[in-house]
Structures are given as structure tokens and as C-alpha cells.
Write a protein that binds this DNA or RNA. Structure first.
Lengths: 161, 161
DNA sequence: ATATTTCTGCGATATTTATGCAAAATTTGT
DNA sequence: ACAAATTTTGCATAAATATCGCAGAAATAT
């Protein structure tokens, strides 16, 4: 079920960034529509794991928000999916010793790095993002195929070196 | 009472930026201590008016946050000590070859890096800070225990891997 | 395969938060 | 200053959310 769970978490993020949802029951309905029926208890756990925040929109109505969203700015303006970014230009990964370099279209490094961080890949010690380049520091024992596989979940259509 | 209300709203903001509060009842207690007794109903309205958000800290515990706060970054006009930052979430150090990666709570990498720089640890050639990650480049001959000892003065409660 | 860990559902609550309504306080207009 | 209008508040209660114990399913590790 791991894969299903990860997908469900992604769907949750998509839903709350594409529309205003203010109650878990509403979110449950949307999830069911999207083919991920679940229960309120599980959703509550998911929201905590995603560090999703409950705030208010300009009208004072309650809305769920991703933590990196400031105020009521919708993520659709700023947070593109990697698929969307990929349309703008390739995202590539290259290795050197215990480092990996990810190239993104200009301006998108921070966002991709955020997704990589959130994938919690154990072999990745940390990332630092510039404008269109991300430096990834790997564990000394990291095996590149593994890292590449895990990265592929976050950064699809990656062009290996 | 309008004046009192405005003051109370300010006090609410002060409280939630100076400590982690996860429940309205707790916030009520703090308000009372500060000389602004109120009720849960009023507080709920105040929070909506302030557009205060309820999210989760690193440990998944619930916390109230100002909307303009990124993630769990706390407002601080003064430079927070690492001890203070540590309360917001662990600061950890990991090594890989000639590099060390320090993870901090979101938004605090620059502060911690500044402290590290100022410790003038000879084996540290330099640091680069992102939002929540610091890359440290070590001298080729650096010995990790030494570096860790020196770092511990700056970054207490460090968790080696 | 077997053991171990993680995840989920299912109630079943306990806890927390929001709100309708009426009263009290405050402001405004005259 | 008085009355009307507006805002604020408390109370009671509704609504929403978090959590618990537990059993079984699924994934991971040995």
C-alpha cells in the first residue's frame, strides 16, 4: 500500500492547491472522486504527515494550505508540478563522487529541491538549490542506481548522464 | 473596548510567535497571564480575524502560526541562539567525504551558518547556506570527531549518524 | 517463507474549534 | 447627553478534528 499512500498524499496536495477546501469531509469527497476513497481518521493522519495547515482565506473561510504557501497565495501560481516544469525543459541528474547535480529550467531549482527533500530519500544527506542547479550531497555508501530510482519518482523523465 | 481588543490581538500575535501553542485553551491561559482574560469563542474569532493558521511543527504537534510566517519559522528581530532554534526542531550534522551537511529548521540555515563561520574552525574551509540546509566544505585532512567537537560549541544537541 | 514493520479501516470517543443568539459595551449622530 | 446603530462578547451548543485500541492487509526485512 505504500505506493498507494504516496499517491494519495500527492492527490491531497493537488486537490487543496487546485480548489478551496475547508473541511476534511469535503476533502474526503474529492479524494473519493479521484479514486482514493479513505476515511476521516486516515485523512487526519495524512494532513499531519504532510504538515498541511488550516487557515483562512480573504473571506475568513477556512481553507487547507500547504505549509510552504504563504498567506492565501495559491500554489498554482508558484508551485508547478515537476511534470509541468519538465515541459519547460529537461531536468537532468549527473553524479560525481558523493555529489549529484540536478539541472532544472531557470528559476525552478528551489521547487524541485523541495520535492526532493520531501521524498526523504535516506541516501541523500541534503540539498542546496541555486537558480537552476541543485547540489545533492549523498551518503558515502549511496549507490547511484538506487538514488536514481528514487529520484525518478520525484523527477520523472530524467535524462541519465 | 475597541482599544482593548486591538491590544489583545497584538498580544495574541506576540504569544504565538514567542512560544509554541497548539490549542486555544492554552492560548487563553497565556492571554489571561498577560492580563487579557477572554473566552474560547472570542479567541476563535480573533484567530480568524488575524488569519492565524493552525499547522504542525517538526514533531507533528499542532501549532498556531502567523500567516506571513513561512513554515515554522519564528519571527525574531534579534538573532536567535542555536539553543532557541533547537527548540523549533533538531539541528543535525552528517558527513560525507570532505563535506558536512547541517539541517536546521526551515529558514534558519543562514543564522546557524553565520555562527559556524564565526567559530573560525580551522578545518572548515567554508559554508554555504540554503533555507534549511548548510553545506560545509572541510579541509582534506579534517578529522570528523574534531570537527564535531568544535561544531558542538555552536550547534548543540547534534545527532551524528 | 517467516518475521517485522507500516498502514488502514472501523468504530468510538475525546478533544478542539466554530457559530447562532442575546446581552453588554462602544461608537455615532443629533 | 440620549437614542440608535454598530461592534464585541459570553454562553451554550453544533460542528469539525484528533486520537485510541485493535485487527487485518500490505510492504519490508531476515
Amino acid at each position: 500500500m505504500r505506493q498507494d499512500k504516496d499517491t494519495r498524499l500527492e492527490v491531497i496536495k493537488m486537490i487543496i492547491t487546485s480548489q478551496e477546501v475547508g473541511r476534511q469531509d469535503d476533502l474526503l469527497n474529492e479524494l473519493a472522486k479521484a479514486g482514493f476513497p479513505s476515511t476521516q481518521a486516515t485523512l487526519s493522519r495524512d494532513l499531519r504527515q504532510l504538515r498541511i495547515v488550516k487557515g483562512h482565506n480573504e473571506r475568513g473561510e477556512q481553507v487547507y494550505l500547504l505549509p510552504e504557501q504563504k498567506r492565501y497565495q495559491r500554489i498554482s501560481d508558484t508551485h508547478m508540478t515537476v511534470q509541468q516544469i519538465n515541459r519547460l525543459g529537461a531536468v537532468s541528474v549527473k553524479f560525481s563522487l558523493n555529489l549529484a547535480i540536478v539541472q532544472t529550467p531557470p528559476g525552478h531549482a528551489a521547487h524541485v529541491a523541495y520535492d526532493i527533500d520531501n521524498a526523504h530519500i535516506p541516501e541523500i544527506l541534503g540539498t542546496i538549490a541555486g537558480d537552476d542547479t541543485i547540489l545533492i550531497v549523498l551518503d558515502e555508501t549511496a549507490e547511484r542506481p538506487n538514488v536514481l530510482n528514487r529520484l525518478a519518482e520525484v523527477v520523472p523523465e530524467t535524462r541519465k548522464e
